[in-house]
């Protein structure tokens, strides 16, 4: 087990941080935070397969374990959950329509993945061709629309204690970073190795899990804000 693998495993285990806070704050969760909790659960399931595979690889080096299937499906299900989350959070009619259209576009890209077997074959060795980039791009636009809504409304008393701000920051980092890696680095630089992508993705995952942790940590203040309103 090399350093990169350990770092990758740590990033996958870090999903336990938001899981723990969800359990602690389960009484204070709003509908939207419950949707986010669903995303965390889906990620937890994916990561259980990932970490199990890492442990088995450590016990039996050289044996190949197939986990990409779960990662590919996670990217698809994850996008729909995030889209649903922002569909609830954004109240502007046109942006809601945009989210519906984005979900339709994403469904089209997901269907395009079927011939490669990345989402139909459990033993697949291929990453999704389009859905990672498409979901990153669409989530970024949706998150930026939400930031714009926050600026227009100015209803949040303390933005740094607002759960959805942290969710949005996390999504911006994670999907923005991944988009940057996918579009500009991996596609452009043919020499890129798995290692550089793995380090960046793992770092982004840890950062994302920490921002989700903050979102659930501030779920109490969200209840106060709603009462004030």
């Amino acid at each position: 087990m090399n350093g990169l693998m350990v770092f990758s495993t740590v990033s996958e285990v870090s999903i336990l941080i938001p899981v723990a806070i969800i359990l602690l704050r389960r009484k204070y969760l709003s509908t939207e935070l419950r949707i986010l909790a669903a995303y965390v659960v889906v990620t937890l399931i994916r990561n259980i397969f990932g970490v199990t595979s890492d442990i088995l690889y450590f016990i039996e080096p050289g044996r190949n374990f197939h986990t990409l299937f779960y990662y590919n499906w996670h990217s698809i299900i994850g996008f729909y959950i995030i889209a649903f989350l922002y569909f609830s959070l954004i109240h502007h009619k046109y942006w809601k329509i945009f989210i519906i259209v984005a979900a339709c576009i994403f469904t089209f890209f997901s269907i395009l993945e079927i011939p490669s077997g990345s989402i139909t074959d459990i033993r697949t060795a291929f990453f999704n061709n389009y859905t990672y980039t498409a979901s990153s791009l669409l989530v970024l636009v949706i998150v930026l629309a939400y930031f714009y809504q926050l600026l227009q409304d100015l209803k949040v008393e303390n933005i740094t204690k607002f759960p959805y701000f942290w969710v949005s920051v996390g999504l911006l980092f994670y999907f923005g970073g991944n988009l940057f890696v996918n579009l500009f680095l991996i596609k452009a630089a043919k020499t890129t190795t798995q290692m550089s992508w793995g380090i960046i993705n793992s770092a982004l995952s840890i950062l994302f899990h920490l921002t989700i942790f903050l979102a659930f940590w501030y779920s109490k203040s969200l209840n106060k804000t709603q009462q004030d309103e």
Partner: peptide
């Protein structure tokens, strides 16, 4: 690449 990724 990591440097560029970090810059992003």
């Amino acid at each position: 690449l990591i440097f560029i990724g970090s810059s992003g």
